[in-house]
Design a protein around this nucleic acid. Structure first.
Lengths: 262, 262
DNA sequence: CGACTAGTTGAGGCCAGTCAATGTTGGTGG
DNA sequence: CCACCAACATTGACTGGCCTCAACTAGTCG
């Protein structure tokens, strides 16, 4: 991760989520997310680039906007021109279906880059909506392409970004296509845990930024089912829930749950 | 679509599927798939490129292989180096889950390009397996990237290809996350219909290249459910099934089915 | 012809959805 | 500060769609 201010992701805000107990171990993450942590994620667009390139990237960031909870970053159907890097906060992407059959397609955290689905038809396919007050950097895709033509490692990073989005969705398809409700929810919580962990937050205790209904939409379940399962997980000692605060008490058992046959 | 032999896709084989009744109308498609037909598809990697570029692309196609039904094109975990353009035949991609929880992630027809999920981690995430005897062109991804650096329109096409794969999966997620079994199957058949249509085959009568179990895997259903629904659709006059041959008798009604609330 | 795979159909069970009542939380204004 | 409201969440009773298990049929290939 470079040192150019525009690209650094905001350090975890004190109140934004539950910060890991031992801050010493994670001090490096405070200045910007450690790229070595995020092999599975999309944040490595700037991975392994020289300082000169980073300066060029700096110029790419045309606008850095704040957006309030509930605000729309972009809408399905709106013309595509930018990718958006989340600097702080979080957002959801929502795939609109006919007659209100909408579905949450993803939850996105600082360091992740969204909007890739719009390249194909020059218009966005999803809505992107902030789940909390957030900061977002808009990156001109034309200029990203221009940079990619001149800078081979960056080109590779850009392709990785797109490819990992494909891979992420493959995994999600597997979840929706083959797992029971409890397995889906367990997978979801473990996924959040990993991603918070990679950002220097506690992997075992965090605040859900979305409603039960939104979780359900993402997992192909109804909100009542999500609620019931959270209660059941608590009864079984797997987690502890208090509103949107979740503590994962037995991640090993949660992982075991996933291994069960259908 | 250019005229370079290596890139031309094979004309519909007489016995491969049911050819449209009026061949005259579709004669253009015989020499290579018409790019204007395939806005929704991934086959436009060569769209709108000059003859010179096409010659360069010709050199990219390092191997053109035949592969027999059931043969593996690439395996999950195997090192990534190539994208594969299907020239004739068809194949499935299979996402392997823990303990045999595999799922079909996609069915792929002539003109489509697969393997994009491997870029992100330099290793394939899925298996690709031929559903029938097929011809496949392997494209060195390094050289595609090289070409993309020198040729802006091609770069854009490459990015579109990747983005459309993301968009395709978004749609599939919507299907798996929000639709009933009958709606999923109807959507599946209509999707095949559209894609056969774009290739100059009949949109209303075609041969399924996959088993009921594979259809079920793709749609998150069990093979018995698929079988029962095909029977029901036939009873209701929506389709006519005979083994793997399907006739869509009332596509309007099938589309209406999708509009129903959950 | 037998072995095997693919497909169909039926009976019954269970998981998750539906409907409905109630509880909790957080923001707003008096 | 509290009352109020709306949005969010929990829980229960019931329903139904899809899965499971199982028997049987139809092709296919050696």
């Amino acid at each position: 991760m470079g040192t150019v201010a525009a690209i650094q992701f905001a350090p975890p805000a004190r109140n934004a989520n539950i910060v890991r107990a031992q801050p010493m171990l994670r001090e490096v993450s405070r200045n910007g997310i450690h790229c070595s942590d995020c092999k599975q994620q999309n944040m490595c667009l700037w991975h392994d680039l020289g300082a000169e390139t980073m300066r060029e990237i700096d110029r790419l960031v045309t606008t850095r906007t704040r957006c309030r909870k509930g605000e729309t970053l972009y809408r399905a159907g709106s013309p595509f021109a930018m990718l958006y890097a989340i600097r702080s906060g979080s957002c959801k992407t929502v795939m609109p279906g006919e007659d209100g059959r909408d579905q949450v397609a993803g939850y996105h955290m600082p360091g992740e880059i969204i909007g890739c689905d719009g390249i194909g038809n020059d218009s966005h396919q999803c809505h992107a909506i902030a789940l909390e007050d957030s900061e977002v950097c808009a990156l001109s895709f034309d200029r990203l392409e221009q940079l990619a033509r001149h800078h081979e490692p960056f080109q590779r990073n850009l392709h990785r970004l797109l490819s990992r989005e494909i891979a992420r969705q493959h995994s999600l398809l597997l979840v929706l296509g083959t797992m029971r409700a409890d397995q889906r929810l367990s997978e979801f919580l473990l996924d959040l845990s990993r991603r918070y962990d990679a950002r220097g937050y506690s992997p075992s205790e965090f605040v859900l930024r979305m409603t039960r209904e939104e979780i359900g939409s993402y997992l192909g379940l109804k909100l009542e089912t999500v609620s019931r399962l959270l209660s059941r997980f608590q009864r079984e000692g797997l987690i502890q829930v208090q509103g949107r605060t979740v503590k994962l008490l037995d991640r090993a058992a949660m992982r075991e749950l996933l291994a069960q046959a259908f």
